[in-house]
Design a protein around this nucleic acid. Structure first.
Length: 562
RNA sequence: UGGGGCGUCGCCAAAUGGUAAGGCAGCGGCCUUUGGAGCCGCCAUUUGCAGGUUCGAAUCCUGCCGCCCCAGCCA
């Protein structure tokens, strides 16, 4: 299904499945990804998506997409559409198996009747506060509801009347009759059904009652023939309930099996919807698809490729251990992928004028530049050259630090794909700022080669001032300075990186970039990988920096300064 | 001892009683018309700690320590 992702590492779940297969307990594998349509998918979800789809794929099975829509008060239909878009973008296909828990409401209702009939569930009239009070605490057992021993007849009758809409929300619930003394809290007569007055996005007002997660999820798994219900670790405590429900409702074996894995987080960001929403509400971040967000829509807009995200997810493995993976690992994956496929261009972020004194005043010529040194089939393009160029401010130093191989008075550098030039003069403004650099070129070095074989250490990029197109560059950095920002901390928002976005405008790009459509990914040589943003207009591209190139000079310079 | 879970290099992670893989990050060097890419080398005498069993322990046993999850009519 996904060609470019290397085979994922085995992991404990695949081992378990192999054993079950070998023992003849199961004869196939069906998993599911079960999001609630009430938010935006992020890189943590991507991990769950990859695991579910890829574990199934390993065994020639399938993975369903199921929207867990049992709480109309919290859910909206448009979220489901966005989620499908994200999952498809990641490269996964659920085929015929797009499901909604709400499709099973009738069956789930029948299963509840089974429990009521068997005397393993009851209708409880306690208020939600009273139920909480009866639940006990972590260390003390709970006490039984006074309604626990109602007869099956009365329970069934009451449940039918709940369904008929005879009661107000909160008035009655259906509870499993398990064990108020259990040390596992979800087993203390958990609520299975509650009354809700909200209209449901898919079933409208046909149901005044809705099943709770534990009841709906386990049964939906069973209904769909899910063999392995993979979920994150905080559901471990609910596994006994998951099993209890399937058993007591009479699901034949082999029943679906819940297996929990550790969540995946990323350094320098947070995943929780609530805290990300806070950044948006506070106006710090404009939206869920902002390129700084860890959401899939944000990462897509930033320019991350699906391959890089998949490789990240499978690369960090599937274990029980919760993990916070170094952002550098993600950056490694996107560089690795884009190095292979991104065409190269030249562009100048912070322009400084370079005048080639001995180049004809009105002259210009086209020079050939390689599109991708990693890919011979990518061909080459023509780049215009003229007397006045833009070069990077950082590529000139009047008083260079040690090991500075770029342009400096009296020294010779290579203008990439153009000529060898020697710096002859510097023009400054009244404040002593360098505003213009002058040089002379060697006409014998067209293309950048020295016929006499002389070695030139530095190569810098450039763009012809007369031909260049202006652009806006958006340089992104981490959302939080802290490696592991803790939303529980008082100063949580103080930990935000004030420089998470730097806008450079105007930057100058070689003209071949004039009509690059939104979504185009490319490398600006020596600067980084960029992606054309939808904010671009016909005469002014906007480029998002996905990630910078590895910068050993930057590290050197920083270290030297410190 | 309320219950459950997790502890192997800065971050991930393998190792399933036979003597601590690999990746990322970092650090040296080579090479280079991207200070990119590539290549070479270095980077855990030790697996949270302390004991024990064993010819042999990250793996088994005992005790301890640390962190996380659970008291929604959310998922």
């Amino acid at each position: 299904m996904v060609d470019e992702t290397p085979a994922p590492p085995e992991g404990f779940i695949r081992q378990i499945i192999r054993e079950e297969l070998a023992a003849g307990k199961i004869d196939g594998v069906v998993t599911r990804f079960p999001p609630e349509p009430n938010g935006h998918l992020h890189i943590g979800h991507a991990s769950a998506i990859c695991q579910n789809f890829l574990v199934a794929e390993t065994f020639g099975g399938r993975c369903h997409l199921r929207f867990d829509d049992t709480n109309p008060a919290a859910e909206e239909a448009h979220y489901a559409d966005r989620m499908m878009e994200d999952i498809r973008w990641l490269g996964f296909d659920w085929g015929e198996h797009l499901h909604y828990t709400s499709d099973y409401f009738e069956q789930i209702f029948e299963f509840a009747c089974v429990l009521l009939r068997e005397g393993t569930a009851f209708v409880c009239d306690l208020s939600s506060e009273e139920i909480a009070a009866h639940r006990g605490t972590l260390k003390e057992p709970g006490t039984a509801s006074p309604y626990r021993e109602r007869s099956p007849e009365e329970n069934l009758d009451l449940f039918q009347r709940m369904r008929a809409g005879e009661f107000a929300p909160g008035e009655r619930v259906v509870r499993a009759k398990i064990d108020m003394g259990s040390s596992v809290l979800p087993m203390r007569d958990p609520v299975l059904y509650r009354i809700q007055a909200t209209a449901h996005p898919r079933t409208g007002t046909t149901w005044p009652i809705y099943p709770m997660y534990d009841f709906a999820h386990s049964l939906s798994d069973a209904i769909e023939g899910i063999t392995h219900s993979l979920c994150s670790h905080e559901f471990v405590d609910r596994r006994p309930l998951y099993d209890w429900i399937l058993e007591h409702v009479g699901i034949p074996t082999p029943r679906p099996r819940q297996i929990e894995f550790g969540r995946v987080g990323l350094t320098h960001t947070v995943m929780s919807k609530r805290h990300l929403a806070r950044l948006i509400d506070a106006g710090i971040i404009p939206g869920w698809d902002d390129p700084r967000m860890p959401t899939l829509s944000g990462m897509r807009r930033r320019g991350y490729t699906p391959e890089s995200i998949r490789n990240f997810c499978t690369g960090v493995g599937l274990t029980r251990q919760p993990k916070t993976v170094d952002l550098a690992r993600l950056e490694f994956e996107i560089r690795e992928h884009l190095n292979e496929v991104a065409p190269r261009f030249m562009g100048v972020q912070r322009p400084l004028k370079l005048i080639v004194e001995n180049y004809p005043e009105d002259g210009s010529e086209e020079l050939s530049a390689v599109n991708n040194p990693q890919d011979p089939t990518a061909g080459s393009r023509e780049v215009p050259f003229s007397r006045e160029l833009w070069i990077e401010q950082d590529d000139f130093a009047e008083d260079p630090p040690k090991k500075f191989h770029r342009l400096t008075p009296g020294k010779e550098v290579r203008l990439r794909y153009a000529y060898l030039v020697t710096c002859t003069d510097v023009v400054k403004d009244a404040d002593g700022q360098v505003v213009e650099v002058h040089c002379r070129y060697d006409p014998e070095t067209r293309g950048g080669d020295a016929p006499d074989g002389r070695k030139v250490r530095g190569t810098i990029h450039w763009v012809s001032a007369r031909h260049a197109i202006p652009a806006e560059l958006r340089l992104y950095d981490v959302l939080f300075r802290d490696e592991e920002p803790d939303p529980r901390d008082e100063g949580f928002e103080d930990a935000l990186n004030p420089d998470s976005l730097k806008t450079l405008d105007p930057a100058w790009l070689e003209p071949s970039l004039a009509e690059a459509p939104a979504g185009t990914r490319l490398q600006l040589e020596r600067l980084g990988y960029f992606c054309v943003d939808p904010d671009s207009t016909a005469d002014r591209p906007v480029l998002n920096r996905i990630v910078g190139l590895r910068d050993t000079w930057g590290k050197l310079a920083k270290r030297g300064k410190a």
